[in-house]
Simulated scan of single mutants.
Amino acid sequence: MITYTSFPLPPDNTYNGSRQHHLDVAEDVMMELGDDQDLSEAGGSKLTYPGEPLTSSQAYMRGHGTYVDNEEVIASVAGTIERVNKLVTVRAIRTRYNPEVGDLVVGRITEVLTTYSFRGSNNLTPRCHVRQVQPRRWKVDANSRQDAVLMLSSVNLPGGVQRRKLESDELQMRTFFEEGDLLVAEVQAFFSDGAMSLHTRSLKYGKLRNGQLVTVPPILVRRLKSHFIALPCGVDLILGLNGYIWVSKHVKESEQEGEEGFDAEAVYSNQNDPIDDSTRVAISRVTNIILVLSSHFVPLTDTLLLEAYEWTVDQEGGAKDLLQEDVGNALVATVTARL
């Protein structure tokens, strides 16, 4: 017997201020299925809920997140409907991040793996090595099905990006990243077991400081031309495609230049810079905006976040006021109507 988990419906069964719709299909297919099929006009992916009929199983093939009952394709999870030719799938809202090469992700170091070496009780004893299964790397929680891997050879170290990594670098791995550190990186490749390999070979990647981490469903982070966003309020955003978003104090571009011979103490420092009260308020405001939009299942883009921030400033309210239900609903209705 197959059972399906129920999810709470959005208020009034709506999405972005309009009634929920379904698949975007050609007019000839709609006429072939008949007017009784609840299918949408153009508009891309739409939100659906478990148990909702999507279309006829005779006209479309069922994919992940759906099942067939009484010759109808029915959603088995809450998520967005996607169609590729005749294949209908539902991408679940609450799911782990599915990485692709080139993705920008924000993660947290969970473990440091090194190769340890030692000598015996006298100098005549040859050097012995105790090797772990995965030496010289960091394990990173990237909100995926398994931890990602950041190799020592894939990070930017003092003396230039291209230089060889020495044994002395391995002994100092925890001075670069240690357990609990947050970082931004790029997906470089995949190992045979499916784990993703990350790299931070540019100064725009690396350790994160001076900010706050916000977690949203990965499905809400759209792929953009750039996932580094600088808002006019002095706040920088890093939209990780894995659903981890970093909201921080603005960093001038001049501070990120000059990779050759960079200041390692500054790049890998664990100390936050001084942050004034106005910047702290701006960071809190942007954080609450993201939380409100994600709670209403609104996809996050640079344009939408800028519109949302300008709206909140015009309201002359505090950052905490955004968490009130009526203010949050007004924010969502306004920004989605403008865009």
Results as ranks from 00 to 15, higher is better:
Asp12Pro: 03
Asp147Pro: 03
His129Lys: 11
Val184Lys: 00
Gln315Gly: 04
Tyr309Ser: 04
Gln134Val: 03
Ser40Gly: 14
Met61Pro: 01
Gly317Phe: 09
His64Glu: 14
Lys165Gly: 00
Val161Pro: 01
Ser18His: 15
Val130Thr: 10
Gly234Ser: 03
Met30His: 08
Gln212Trp: 02
Phe228Gln: 07
Ile93Ser: 11
Pro8Asn: 12
Arg209Met: 03
Asp141Val: 00
Thr48Cys: 15
Lys46Arg: 15
Asp326Phe: 15
Lys204His: 06
Asn156Leu: 15
Leu33Pro: 01
Glu71Arg: 14
Ile238Gln: 05
Asp236Ile: 15
Ala75Met: 14
Phe7Pro: 12
Leu224Arg: 06
Pro11Asp: 09
His199Lys: 07
Thr55Glu: 13
Pro135Gln: 01
Gly180Val: 01
Asp36Ala: 10
Gly234Arg: 01
Ile93Phe: 07
Cys128Leu: 13
Pro299Cys: 12
Glu259Arg: 15
Leu231Pro: 00
Gln256Arg: 12
Asp103Thr: 08
Thr114Val: 07
Asp277His: 14
Pro11Val: 06
Ala333Lys: 14
Cys128Tyr: 05
Met151Tyr: 07
Phe176Val: 05
Ser76Gly: 11
Lys204Ala: 01
Ala148Met: 03
Ile219Ser: 15
Val298Trp: 12
Lys207Phe: 05
Leu113Val: 04
Gly211Ser: 02
Thr115Phe: 06
Ala185Tyr: 06
Ser248Lys: 02
Thr115Ser: 05
Val221Arg: 04
Asp273Ile: 00
Ile283Asn: 00
Pro11Arg: 01
Ala333Leu: 13
Pro8Glu: 12
Tyr4Phe: 13
Tyr205Ser: 03
Leu23Met: 14
Leu300Lys: 11
Ile2Phe: 05
Gly243Asp: 04
Leu322Ile: 13
Ala142Met: 09
Leu331Pro: 04
Tyr244Leu: 10
Arg136Met: 04
Met151Trp: 03
Gly63Thr: 11
Ser192Thr: 15
Gly102Val: 04
His199Arg: 08
Val90Glu: 10
Val251Ser: 05
Tyr205Met: 05
Ala42Trp: 01
Asn70Glu: 12
Leu124Lys: 15
Leu304His: 09
Thr312Met: 02
Gln172Pro: 00
Ala330Val: 14
Arg62Ala: 13
Leu171Gln: 07
Pro232Lys: 11
Arg91Trp: 05
Arg131Val: 11
Gly258Val: 11
Leu291Asp: 12
Thr5Met: 06
Glu255Gly: 01
Ala42Arg: 06
Ser192His: 10
Val101Tyr: 04
Tyr205Pro: 00
Arg127Met: 10
Gly120Leu: 00
Arg62Tyr: 14
Ser121Gly: 04
Arg19Ala: 13
Leu124Val: 06
Ala189Trp: 07
Gly240Met: 06
Gly44Tyr: 13
Asp236Val: 14
Ile219Tyr: 15
Gly44Ser: 09
Gly79Asp: 07
Ala264Met: 03
Leu203Met: 11
Glu41Cys: 10
Leu231Phe: 08
Leu198Ile: 02
Arg136Phe: 03
Ala148Cys: 06
Pro232Met: 11
Ala230Lys: 09
Val84Phe: 08
Ser6Pro: 07
Gly180Ile: 00
Ser144Phe: 06
Met173Trp: 10
Pro126Glu: 07
Tyr4Asn: 07
Glu325Cys: 10
Ala330Cys: 14
Ile283Gln: 05
Ser40Ile: 00
Gln172Asn: 12
Glu310Thr: 10
Ser226Ile: 14
Ile109Lys: 03
Asn122His: 13
Tyr67Gln: 12
Arg222Lys: 15
Glu265Pro: 00
Asn270Gln: 08
Arg222Asn: 11
Asp236Phe: 01
Leu291Ala: 07
